[in-house]
Design a protein around this nucleic acid. Structure first.
Lengths: 344, 344
DNA sequence: TAAATTTACGGAATCGTTTTCGGGAACGAT
DNA sequence: ATCGTTCCCGAAAACGATTCCGTAAATTTA
């Protein structure tokens, strides 16, 4: 703020003592007498003194802030994550600097550079869909910046991470489709660069195999930008509909893909689930209100944010270098609704 | 970050010149020779020098960051606003510190205190539903902190604000109901403390009057916490259903209230629009996919965030104190869909 | 040629805070 | 009376950058 703030100098001057004494008194140092402490405290109170965090940051080389990089804030899944991050960091006296990559590698790199120059004490990141090369993150990590990965992780960097059991979520969703009588189950997935994509597709394939269905890769469509561009989803759906053996169900692996897919089906006048079943990953809190009520795999996003933040703060505040890293795996929940009604 | 960053001292030492020269060379000062500038620039590039924003903040008494207070990040309307805020501030080299009040006055005050101690250069705020007393904001404003209000504004502080034409949005929605043949139109609104509530209810009443219907205040239900607690909405709907003259349409004044209302209706097994029509303010991007497709008043949230940020940066970077303040009023859009099908 | 001006740079203060170092005073022990 | 402690406190450096002020050398002007 522009206006003159009260500093320890003002207190020192008012009391006719040195700034060192004031500083020590405020920090309750043992080498300051009770009376002096009392005086300083009263004076600080009276002048409404607030320590300057900027000066502290400069001195202590820590900013009490953590950086967050997600692809898009207004995506429900990520805003719930941020909600969780904020809830923990608020209590612990850290502030959160949020930036979004918009699924662009270039922007992710710029954000990271910016955050590191702002001296964030740690980083929570869910990598962008374009991110194949991790060297920018590796460099920061090797320099000592604590990092925790969220949802979209990488093996290339050895640190904490918080994910959900993607395999299980996809397996259960797919199995549910099979058990409901769907035979030709297609999948619309994110970029192959992402960890979540491969894990979810693995669960999808495994569930099919477990029920005697041979996975058919022509049933799998990737949306490189995860549906940031609606046309991507539309095109994926169109391709599935021109498949020689049209699928009778679609499994979508992310929030945007799920709603994008439903939107496309609506526009084509396709009835769900009569013409085609639909189940997808989604954290929308109105999935039950959709037409039809959507069967979804829901991720505990808020909790993911909270746990990731706890791990990060633990990393930041640890005295000795942490060598043992945790990969926390939370469970997704399958909510069965009308979009996957049994075929009989 | 903990690790040693490259400073101008390092450059100075490497080149055997003073830090002042380095600083001036980097800022392209006229009193440095071309050759020296060249040398410094090359060296900075080679060492990968990044200016330390913390040191700059301390020196210049500005942090190049702006504070944002909204009630809830994961509310679509606000996350879209934040998206807009971020898009502008990113380009202008400011970072954004986000905090949420969760509709609590107490938390709003704490957030504000925190942000001000972090030396934010300016503030964007949409006040919480509990906020009746503006003295905490007034104090900051009088100290010289630039503030811009967003959506939920107050007359008590003279500064820029960005809102939508709430009267118009509500008027058009209500009129649309009337023209579609609905007779007994109820309203579920936010706390009476909020500017938006009164403006929207005024539009609602005026539209009724304009069409020869006398507004009936027993048709108006308030949800103090704006539906943060789902029970609130449920109770409001229940009360309307036990009204001696059951309404045949409901107008809801905010995102959460709209989806909450639809959810309640679903649970009660009420058919929309056959049993009751529904139109509400909402920024959900899947309103068209709802059951039924919802008629909504949509606010240009992203643009609101952008314009508010532009106004704020203008305030922050203005040389002389700004005396003339703007109230930017954007237009909402009525999207007519199935939830308000004509009665004939 | 002497004086005045410009050019190009270094020294040091500054922002607000913490912290190291050092030292005076009071006290008890010898 | 002298020495060693302990208790309180101040001076100054440090964090990284900018900037005012001073100044030697080079250049222009009279």
């Amino acid at each position: 703020m522009k206006f003159e703030a009260v500093t320890i100098k003002d207190i020192a001057k008012a009391l006719g003592i040195s700034t060192s004494t004031v500083s020590r008194a405020l920090r309750d140092s043992h080498e300051i007498s009770q009376e002096t402490k009392q005086l300083v405290l009263e004076c600080a109170e009276r002048l409404n003194y607030r320590p300057n965090p900027i000066a502290l940051s400069l001195k202590e080389k820590r900013s009490r802030s953590i950086g967050v990089v997600v692809c898009e804030i207004s995506n429900t899944f990520f805003s719930q994550i941020i909600n969780g991050i904020e809830s923990i960091s608020y209590d612990r006296g850290y502030n959160v600097i949020i930036s979004q990559s918009l699924e662009s590698y270039e922007r992710e790199v710029m954000n990271l550079q910016y955050l590191s120059s702002r001296s964030v004490d740690g980083l929570l990141i869910s990598v962008s869909t374009e991110t194949n090369d991790m060297s920018h993150l590796k460099a920061l990590h090797e320099k000592g910046l604590p990092i925790v990965f969220l949802d979209r992780i990488t093996d290339e960097i050895n640190t904490h991470s918080v994910i959900i059991d993607n395999f299980k979520g996809a397996y259960e969703a797919t199995e549910h489709l099979v058990l409901s009588g769907y035979k030709n189950i297609a999948a619309i997935a994110n970029s192959e660069f992402l960890s979540i994509t491969n894990e979810r597709l693995a669960g999808y394939r495994e569930a099919l195999l477990a029920h005697g269905i041979t996975p058919d890769d022509t049933y799998i469509k990737h949306c490189f930008y995860g549906g940031m561009d609606f046309n991507e989803v539309e095109e994926a759906v169109n391709k599935l509909f021109t498949h020689k053996n049209r699928p009778d169900a679609i499994f979508t692996t992310s929030d945007k893909l799920t709603t994008g897919c439903l939107k496309t089906l609506h526009r084509r006048g396709v009835r769900v689930p009569d013409d085609i079943g639909l189940v997808g990953f989604s954290n929308s809190d109105i999935a039950e209100l959709l037409n039809p009520a959507l069967t979804v795999v829901r991720q505990p996003a808020r909790e993911m944010g909270q746990q990731a933040t706890e791990l990060l703060l633990q990393l930041i505040e640890s005295k000795r270098p942490v060598k043992q890293f945790e990969k926390r795996v939370l469970s997704p929940e399958l909510h069965i609704r009308a979009s996957t009604l049994p075929k009989w």
